[in-house]
Amino acid sequence: MEYVIKTDRLTKRFGDFTATNEITFEVEKAEIFGFLGANGAGKTTAMRMLCGLSIPSSGTATVAGFDVYKQTEEIKRNIGYMSQRFSLYEDLTVQENIRFFGGIYGLSNREIKTKGEDLLEQLGLKNEAKKLVASLPLGWKQKLSFSVAVLHQPKIVFLDEPTGGVDPVTRRQFWDLIYEASAKGITVFVTTHYMDEAEYCNRISIMVDGKIEALDTPANLKSQFKASSMDQVFYQLARGAKRSD
């Protein structure tokens, strides 16, 4: 099995506070990996370390085969990222956003042109290409944001609560895009608060107070915790949490 993310006792401390405490896990190529946990459980810190934004305090990790201590530049070239705030420029048009983000991820102008057109076609946004992003409905912004994050065909895409504040139908459509990306071989690392989304993942890990307390497929976790839904699994684990926002 090919692992694109591999961590071993990865830890981040801020002074006395251990945000992420010795987490160890692997993510396979093209897997959709759900990263769950209550607010303050340490998800964001872990994700920042994997994206090369934050240097770990101890432990080891590789992302796309590169070391998170020394090869952050190489990591950045091989990942895509989408945050809960959609990360598009509202005062730029759809096309300008595609051009800009394609550019900073190192695509040439020619690549941006062809890939950008494919993308507009695929999303059915051809007629909106010259409209400001601010005028698009939330669901469209999200899809566009995701498509922009994978435009340069990264090995892994990190999604930080990508579907916050969106209705279930749009959420379902958004997940179609995620499956498509996964089918193309892109690994998806996603954090979420929605338990219906957790069910869509291949495997999920649940963090409590900086530690990974459970890691398996949704079906296995449900039988392990004798629960009928992921909601119940999550509450059983999160009830013991000492810290929150």
Binding site: K76, Y81, M82, S83, Q84, S87, E90, I104, G106, A149
Partner: peptide, 12 residues
């Protein structure tokens, strides 16, 4: 708006 995060994660 959160775009700074994306810029920092990018290879730019």
């Amino acid at each position: 708006t959160g775009t700074m995060e994306v810029l920092l994660v990018s290879p730019f």
